[in-house]
Design a binder for these strands. Sequence first.
DNA 1: GTCAAGATTAGT
DNA 2: CTAATCTTGACG
Length: 212
Amino acid sequence: MAELIQRSFYARSAVVVARDLLGHWLVREIAGVRLVGRIVETEAYLGEEDAASHAFRGPTPRNRSMFGPPGHAYVYLIYGMHHCLNIVTGPVGKGQAVLIRAVEPLEGLDVMRMNRKGVPLRQLTNGPGKLCQAFAIDKTLDGHDLCLAQALWLEAGPPPQETICQGPRIGVRGDDKALSRPWRFFLKNNPFISPNSLNNHPCNASMHSDTR
DNA sequence: GTCAAGATTAGT
DNA sequence: CTAATCTTGACG
């Protein structure tokens, strides 16, 4: 098994972590069965300075895990029907997190297809709500420690060969500043990024793989 | 207590 | 473009 990602990785700015998360593996274990997805799209959310962030107005019962230690999950229900998975980053109390927007299925495809019946491979995990359904991630995992290698964690994957693109975040509200922030990161031309990102080429400031 | 809005998705 | 579906948080 690949190397477990340590807490020090998460204890940095959400913007940096969001980009560095591309190519790493999201691992879910259910009843001994292993599901793995390669992270191909993320979004960074900061704390009280970011009008698009759930943490913008300070801690509440829902977002309380955002203000906890880095390396934990923040999972919430949106539109009454879809769950979204975030990774808490940065210093305790800042309210930073990274939304996992899309992964490329690597292991446990059969279970993922079971959780999302009749869905084409390409659309199995190409959105924040879709990947949570495929990986059976819900609010019971809110606050879960990702550094324990239990139930849900991340492992280091090989550095991505694809170009890293960035652009404005999808579906967010807030002030003009928040809307203009290029804090969505994704792997160029990867078939498993969200439909929105696929249509969002050309990417803003393209850069190449990080110095992993 | 009330109520509008939501870091989405699938279907018309 | 719109419905689905229900929790949250702001306000009073």
